[in-house]
């Protein structure tokens, strides 16, 4: 460890730039993937044309539509969902001081599933995202309310209450599926439960970009999250308003997760694994961890979704299967690394 290293800030800046470039390149390549062969030049010409930066596009109507209406919004949605889940996961892990925390910790995913499944079997398939959003926030609210009634919403109480709400919502979801799902709705429900970005359009892409509203709140709080490293007391003694920071960030990550779940269902492992992987590489300072987690999450989800839609073309896999297939072994590797460190 002796000798002059390149400064930490310079390296961090370099990593941000490199990952951003990788993200843009990945997005471009991902749009070219699919049954119709489209070149990267066509992708960018189409994008620039639609942004009114290129007046005349040589790209045919059909190919233009494939890029602009089908693949691009889905790629953007995937990037947003990946970044959002990774960010929410990193924040939840810091707030609860629990390395196993993920964005769904406080019952959000089970609540969302219950909301979504209820609407599917009632035949309101179009309203599923709304149901998921409301369900996730209702579950979170209930978990926090119970924690409060148990004598104050400490992280441990909130997690325990979340587990019970989660179990309850899952049981009700299973009951509804068992009782009233038929062939078609069954497949729809299953793909939703596993998480899927299939059919994502510009509405989903726009919703995913709501990330850009929540992320600044979290990025600005990076130093406050650092202060939690040694617990609430230590954070309070460093001048952090512990209660306000906790509720603000919990609220922001719940909203964020609610939106992401509404877009793609409960896509697993991204929010759990990505922050850990980044932490192993750059340490736990949140000023670095949060932005890098967003970028890595976006790249990871982008490729996972591209694999999900192209591997078994014309059939699509729910992307949650891919993230779990890649994420579970990755997580095991990370756990082994941790065992060596601690």
């Amino acid at each position: 460890m002796r000798g002059k290293k390149p400064s930490g800030r310079g390296l961090h800046f370099l990593a941000l730039v490199a990952l951003s470039l990788l993200l843009i390149a990945s997005a471009t390549i991902a749009v070219t993937f699919g049954p119709a062969d489209i070149s990267p030049t066509e992708v960018w010409t189409t994008i620039l044309h639609h942004l009114a930066l290129v007046p005349e596009s040589p790209v045919s109507r059909l190919r233009d539509a494939i890029v602009w209406d089908l693949r691009l919004p889905r790629v953007i949605a995937a990037m947003g969902v990946g970044a959002g889940l990774a960010l929410a996961g990193a924040v939840m892990q810091a707030l609860t001081r629990n390395p196993l925390a993920d964005p769904y910790l406080l019952g959000l995913s089970s609540g969302a599933a219950l909301g979504a499944v209820t609407l599917v079997v009632m035949g309101f398939a179009l309203l599923v995202p709304v149901g998921a959003f409301i369900g996730s926030l209702a579950a979170l609210g209930l978990a926090l309310l119970i924690a409060q009634l148990l004598g104050g919403a400490t992280p441990v109480r909130a997690i325990l209450a979340g587990i019970s709400i989660s179990a309850l919502a899952s049981a009700m979801t299973s009951f509804i599926i068992f009782w009233s799902a038929t062939g078609d709705s069954y497949r729809e429900i299953l793909s939703w439960l596993m998480g899927s970005l299939s059919g994502s359009g510009w509405v989903d892409a726009g919703l995913a970009m709501s990330l850009l509203l929540c992320a600044p709140i979290m990025l600005v709080s990076a130093r406050g999250l650092d202060a939690f490293a040694f617990g609430d007391k230590s954070a309070a003694s460093l001048g952090v308003d512990v209660a306000r920071l906790r509720w603000t960030l919990l609220g922001a990550s719940a909203l964020l997760t609610g939106v992401m779940v509404a877009i793609g269902g409960a896509i697993g492992f991204v929010g759990l694994v990505v922050p850990h992987a980044v932490r192993l590489a750059v340490g736990s300072r949140h000023g670095k961890l949060l932005p890098l987690s967003m970028l890595v999450g976006a790249i990871f989800m982008l490729w996972a979704d591209t694999m999900a839609r192209t591997l078994f073309d014309p059939r699509e896999l729910p992307v949650g299967i891919v993230t779990a297939l890649v994420g579970a072994p990755a997580f095991l590797l990370i756990l082994m690394r941790f065992r060596r460190v601690t």
Partner: peptide, 28 residues
């Protein structure tokens, strides 16, 4: 304030931990 024995699972270097002490002096 220094606690009895405060541990962490975060990956922080010794310098990172000491830098936490600058939090009250830094703009958010």
């Amino acid at each position: 304030y220094v606690e009895q024995s405060a541990s962490t699972e975060e990956r922080l270097s010794v310098a990172d931990v000491v830098a936490l002490g600058r939090i009250p002096h830094l703009p958010a």
